[in-house]
Every structure is written in C-alpha cells, then in structure tokens.
C-alpha cells in the first residue's frame, strides 16, 4: 500500500464518488470494509479478478462502496448469485459480504447448501445482532433477553450460532472476530481468501443506532469497549461453545481449518472421467 499525504491509502479500492457512506456513526461495518481492503492489498491479488456480492441490509451496501466488480442483489440471495458467478468463471475470487439477517435468516438455506457443496466462496458475515436497515427488528442472532423494536419485552428466541452452523454444514474455514480485533480480522480474511472452499468469517460489529440504543448500551465506542473487555481469544474452540449470551463473554478466534474438495474440483473431475468414458465407448 502506497501511502500519500493527500490521499487516503484505501481510496483506490473505494468508489470515492459515493463516500461518505450511509453507515451511522459508531457502526463497525466501515471498519470491516477497511479490514477487507487491507487484506486484498496485502494479498496482492489481481483486483480485476475479484468480485463482491452483497445482499440487502446495512452490510448489503458494502458492494456499492468497493471499487471492484460488485453486485447488490436481492435479500438473502447473495450466496446463490455468487455461486452462479463462481460456476460461470471459476478463475474469479468471489466474496460474499453481507449481514446476519441476510445470510442466516432469509439466506439460511443457501448458506447451508453452499457450505455443503463447498463452493469456493469467502463469506464475510457482519453480525450486529439486529435488523438495522429496517429500524431495529429482532434478528436470528439477537441474544436472549435483548430488546429490539419488535421484542419490546426481551427476545425469547434462541439465537443462531453462526460458526456452529457453518461447521456442521461443511465450511472449510470458520473464524469469528469483533470489529475491534482489526488486525486479527484482516489476517483471517487473508486466510479465508486463500483457502479453496467455503470459508466463513463472522464479524461481531457494534450497531450504535438500534441495538445499543434500545438496550441502553451507549454509543458505538461503548460497544467497542465492551468487546475489548469481554472477548476471549480461544482458537480451535469447539463451535458448540460459541453461543453469544446477552452482554456476556464473546469467544473469538479461528475455529475450523480443514480440507475438502471444492464443488468446481469435483465437477471438473467428473467431467473429465465422463468424457474419457464416453470417448472410449465411441471407439
């Protein structure tokens, strides 16, 4: 990264005509985008071959700010859209950048099946515990007893454990960091981008406007301070222990790193063997 006095070092990978972005003060999505951009630049990838797909929601807007081939699709369908892109051109590095509601709730089915097929995607799931774009409704990741505008007496639904879901569905790389663990998050994104197969990086991110306001948790900076004090790094922790309780300790780290053949590899193997078999039978 070349740093200059008059230009922000990330400007080359941002659509500067759209900055300032729409995210609220104290939101962690911008920080996650920074981590992603730094990861891309550290990897020295060919940026023409990287493509970002987003769904709908606050994090869904990421695609609109990153200066790569980028797609802002329908709610929850970022993963199948990205699957199509990857199948259409396996040379591309396809990154799905979306939120917890988009990926785990409406796109939950696609998440599970893309992980099962092991499509070569990097999924960055920004988890802010709430549907923020629509005004703070209860999300599949809202911790028990947390208030939202649609759970005014406290949430009573058991939240999803994203790393466990990813692991059991077959993801090859699973990590979780908060928006404060910015360097570790960057390293994880680098590893996820290099890993062939379905890799998931969950980012716990503060939502200052909806989640923390209705729960009286202060500003974004107070949420960050909470992460600072309450997050515990435990690499390779069994994913069933990774549930997040309301204002309790958050376990972060790298949990899964395993090898499995990707969909494209298996498909190409099948094509080659079938082609050989067919040409033999022709003779």
């Amino acid at each position: 990264m070349i740093k200059k006095e008059d230009h922000h070092p990330m400007e080359s990978l941002l659509r500067m005509d759209r900055i300032p972005h729409i995210w609220c003060p104290g939101c962690g999505i911008g920080t996650t985008v920074t981590a992603f951009i730094v990861a891309l630049e550290k990897l020295k990838l060919d940026f023409n071959k990287v493509c970002v797909v987003s769904g709908i929601g606050c994090t869904g807007r990421v695609a609109g700010y990153i200066n790569l081939d980028s797609f802002h699709t329908t709610h929850g369908r970022a993963i199948p859209f990205a699957t199509g892109i990857k199948l259409g051109n396996p040379e591309l590095k396809v990154v799905v950048f979306s939120g917890d509601g988009d990926l785990i709730s409406i796109g939950g089915n696609h998440f599970i099946h893309a992980a099962r097929r092991n499509i070569d995607l990097t999924v960055i799931c920004v988890n802010n515990f709430i549907y923020a774009m629509t005004g703070g409704q209860v999300a599949p990741t809202t911790p028990l007893t947390a208030y939202t505008t649609t759970s005014p007496y406290g949430n009573f639904e058991l939240p999803s454990n994203v790393p466990q879901l990813a692991e059991s569905a077959g993801a090859v790389y699973v990590a979780r960091w908060t928006a404060l663990h910015i360097r570790r998050l960057t390293n994880s994104i680098i590893e996820a981008l290099q890993k062939p197969g379905f890799s998931v990086v969950e980012v716990i991110s503060p939502c200052a406007m909806y989640y923390s306001r209705i729960n009286r948790l202060g500003d974004g900076i107070d949420m960050m301070k909470f992460y600072h004090e309450n997050s515990v790094i435990k690499h390779n922790e069994p994913t069933e222990n990774l549930d997040i309780d309301y204002q309790k300790e958050i376990i972060v780290g790298k949990f899964i790193n395993r090898e499995r053949p990707t969909f494209t590899d298996s498909y190409n193997d099948w094509l080659v063997t079938e082609k050989k078999a067919q040409s033999k039978s022709m003779i």
Binding site: K3, E5, P20, G26, G30
Partner: peptide
Amino acid sequence: GLCEMLCPDFAIWSTL
C-alpha cells in the same frame, strides 16, 4: 496505523 484501520469512515490515516 491502528487509527487508519479502525476508522469506519476512511477519514484518518498516518504516513511516515
């Protein structure tokens, strides 16, 4: 460079 990485608004950076 921590301020640069933490800033969600791409508003601050440092140079040598």
